[in-house]
Amino acid sequence: MSDFIIDIEGEKLKLLPQRAIFWEALKTLILSDLHLGKAGHFRKHGIPISRKIHLTDLQTLERLIKNHKPERVILLGDLFHSVENNEWDDFLRFLDVYDFVEFILVEGNHDILSNYPENLPMIPLLEVSPFSFSHIREESKLYNISGHIHPGVSIRGRGRQSMTMPCFYFSKDYGVLPAFGQFTGIKKIRPKKDDRVFGIADRTIVELT
């Protein structure tokens, strides 16, 4: 896999093809929109979606923790999609296994559960200079990093072929992460002239111009 280092506000952020950011200076892993439990929500309504989808996401997160050894993981909202179910129990066990890592949940619009554990504090906004972290983009004196919209871009080949891929998006004042969860949609964005967009294709980060 190939990652990419970008400089934002004088800080080096490593963009990972697993749809996350590693802020090495602070030993912090940043990701957004796991939407755990979404498969269970579909099953409840008679649509047979496998639980393995979310187990794969947790396995990916596990590999990131083992490879990068973060001291803190910031979850930028929409950790869990709906009411408690087996996928939520899977995540609680995951927290117990990695109790030596600090997990912080920045509240998202889907984060409506009532029994968040003590080792998963949930806050509306996190400020760690020079960044502010939120689920939905917030106006801030600091550079805002958020999730929520599941950004993606479409590229076209020489013929009429096209493909849409998840992406990292950075403007002058804010950045948006792709959804970490695999069972999520993509919203195509329209970057402006000076914005930077990094697509994720074939487990590789590609800067698009």
Rank of each mutant, 00 (worst) to 15 (best):
G77A: 10
S82E: 10
N109F: 06
H68Y: 15
K141L: 07
I149G: 06
I136A: 07
Y174P: 07
E11S: 13
V153G: 10
R156P: 01
F170M: 01
Y174K: 11
I200V: 09
K12A: 14
I21L: 08
K14R: 14
L76K: 13
N67M: 04
Q18W: 03
G37P: 03
Y174C: 12
S132D: 06
S171N: 05
L75G: 04
S162I: 04
L105Y: 13
K193V: 07
V73S: 06
T209M: 09
V106F: 08
F168R: 02
E139P: 02
D99G: 00
S129W: 08
P191Y: 01
R160V: 06
F103D: 00
P151D: 08
G175M: 09
L76I: 12
I8F: 08
Y143A: 11
S146N: 14
F170T: 03
K172G: 06
P130N: 04
E207T: 09
S146K: 00
S114H: 14
S114N: 13
D78E: 09
M163R: 05
P117H: 02
M122I: 15
I189Y: 10
I104Y: 08
F183E: 08
I200G: 04
G199W: 05
K192G: 06
M165P: 02
P121C: 07
K52E: 14
L113D: 03
S171D: 05
F168A: 02
L61K: 00
S82I: 03
I186P: 06
H81R: 09
I49R: 00
R156D: 00
I8T: 12
L75P: 03
G152S: 09
R196G: 10
K187S: 14
D3C: 14
M165V: 06
L26E: 06
H41M: 09
L105R: 10
D195A: 06
N85W: 06
H41C: 04
I49K: 01
S140M: 13
R196V: 07
H148R: 05
L34Y: 08
I8K: 12
S146A: 14
Y116P: 11
R43H: 03
I186F: 05
H68T: 10
L125V: 13
C167E: 01
L79W: 07
P151H: 04
C167A: 02
A179R: 05
K52T: 08
K193T: 07
K44N: 15
S114Y: 09
K38M: 02
R203D: 15
K187W: 04
I21T: 08
E71K: 11
Q182D: 13
R158W: 01
M1R: 12
S129E: 15
M1N: 14
S82T: 11
K38G: 00
N67E: 15
L120V: 05
A25T: 15
I74S: 04
L208T: 01
K187Q: 11
H35W: 12
I49G: 01
V176Q: 09
W23C: 11
